Simulated scan of single mutants.
Amino acid sequence: MNFDLADLRAFLSVADLGSFRAASDALHLSQSALSRRVDKLEDALGVQLFTRTTRKVELTTVGRAFVHRARNVFNELDSALLGIADVAERLSGEVTLACVPSAVGYFLPSVFEAYHRLYPRIRMRVHDESSSAVLLAVTRGDADFGVTYIGTQESDIDFLPLIEEAFVLACPSSHPFAERESVRWSDLGAHPYIALAQGSGNRFLIDQALAHSTSRPRWIWEVNHVAAL
């Protein structure tokens, strides 16, 4: 049937208040929008729920019977939501997450905060590791799930993309690239750069991007973490 909870709520409001005008004020809807919701519900059910005149609105016999059923729907929904909230409050345990350090500082704090509000009795253990170490932790079962840059061909691990970001070039304001809006990977060949260490997910992705360049840039410093750049 093509109707939703908002249509049921519109019907109950008119039934309780005995007026489309009063119901539209209570629901902060225009009378025409409210009327369309009630019409939609009647069309879906194939019955007339109200008799309407210019002076009053009354429930039909079917409408009076349906009021109780519609109210039960909302009562059951409220009970279900309260039950879920109660279960969430009683859940306890520990979840282990392996993730790259940049994710911990970038977008995970707000996720942790929201998760803790929903499940206050569940503790979160976070292992901030390199991308390869994150994959290894999930593969070995040392972590329940991981957040990393790179994937793998492991058949028993599922991957779900969370965010997509572009690489950006950081250089001094005096550098020839500083005034350019974009730089191609092939443009980097003649310029030395600071590299991330082997084993880093970012290093893996950068090496892949540079693999087809005829002239690869030469690194002159190498660091372990993005923060050190």
Rank of each mutant, 00 (worst) to 15 (best):
D4R: 15
R9M: 14
A15C: 00
D16S: 09
L17Q: 08
F20A: 04
A23P: 03
S32Y: 02
L34P: 05
S35K: 13
R37A: 10
D39L: 05
D39H: 03
L49T: 15
F50L: 06
T53A: 03
V62T: 13
F66W: 12
V67Q: 01
H68G: 03
A70K: 01
A70M: 04
R71G: 08
L82M: 03
I84Y: 02
D86L: 07
D86T: 10
R90A: 09
L91Y: 00
S92N: 12
L97C: 08
A98N: 09
C99Q: 12
V100C: 08
S102Q: 13
S102C: 06
F112H: 07
A114W: 03
H116N: 03
R117N: 01
R117Q: 04
R123Q: 00
M124T: 09
M124P: 02
V126L: 05
S130I: 01
S131F: 06
S132V: 08
G146E: 08
V147M: 10
Q153A: 13
F159H: 06
P161N: 12
P161E: 14
L162M: 05
F167E: 10
A170R: 00
H175L: 08
P176N: 04
F177C: 02
E179Y: 01
E179D: 13
E179T: 12
R180H: 08
E181H: 00
S182L: 09
V183D: 09
S186I: 15
S186V: 15
D187N: 09
I194G: 07
I194L: 14
I194H: 06
N202L: 15
L205G: 01
I206M: 09
A209L: 10
H212N: 13
S215T: 10
R216H: 04
P217T: 06
R218I: 08
R218D: 07
E222T: 08
